[in-house]
Amino acid sequence: MKSEQNQENTKKFGMVIDLDVCTGCGSCMVACMAENNVPFRKDESDKLKSITWMRVYKLTNGKPYPETDICYLPRPCQHCEGHEGHSPCVSVCPATATDYDMQTGIVSQIYTRCFGCRYCMAACPYHARYFNWYDPVWPKGMEKYLNPDVSVRMRGVVEKCSLCIHRYQAAKNKAFMEGKTEIEEGDYQTACTQACPAGAITFGDLNNPSHAVYKLKQQPHAFRLLERLGANPKIYYVSSREWVRRAGDNYLKNEGPAKIG
């Protein structure tokens, strides 16, 4: 009975990001920081110390002027499923501070369990995890804008994109109050998806055929990052440009995305 119920309710939240539409403006990064109480310091120009759950990378085709081309690639936590939930980070965490939720497909991060060994950061192939080297300090008065739905992290712990899980919880509560058993697609959207002015990010349940992501991920030009590692991420990208798709993995000159199944 229980497993039957699980089967029915198993969700796999993920994203499809259209790199042809993404303009690299960075609104997703700011929306994420504003929603999730990500701190900032006086000097954020050293990106090794900068915490950005969502980060927009700039890719270039490496060709000389004027054949140069640029593509922007937003990178949240990829919420890898691995093989049966064995995500690279989950497998190495000695504190069970990060876990793969089979019900939602979200890789969680429990700050109070984390003791800052940073194994998960070393294991993550996508540099999606960040360590709090400093205590978060907001300039006097600015702590007023902090979101009560997201806990503020402290020095010494690792943090990363949560797929705005607090919004999922809020959507579930709302559905429960309204006597529904299921949440609507539009009720649970991440802050970055909602903010993207170009509409490049689509978010939803990858298992649900009625959700937009279900079809979008099956487009011929859809790919995932470093697919051959087997991390089985849930963030899909779409690009019509071949060099961008090639940049998604470490291909040899004579192989390409098309050649691997």
Binding site: A31, G141, Y145, L146, A195
Partner: peptide, 29 residues
């Protein structure tokens, strides 16, 4: 706590940019 784009506004139709999103940092500066 947060600034978001207004749904149905004729100019931005719910979208918002990074400057608008960070507006509260100006209010509480």
């Amino acid at each position: 706590v947060k600034i978001e784009g207004m749904k149905g506004h004729p100019v931005n139709q719910g979208g918002i940019c990074m400057l608008g999103l960070a507006g509260l940092q100006l209010l509480y500066a």
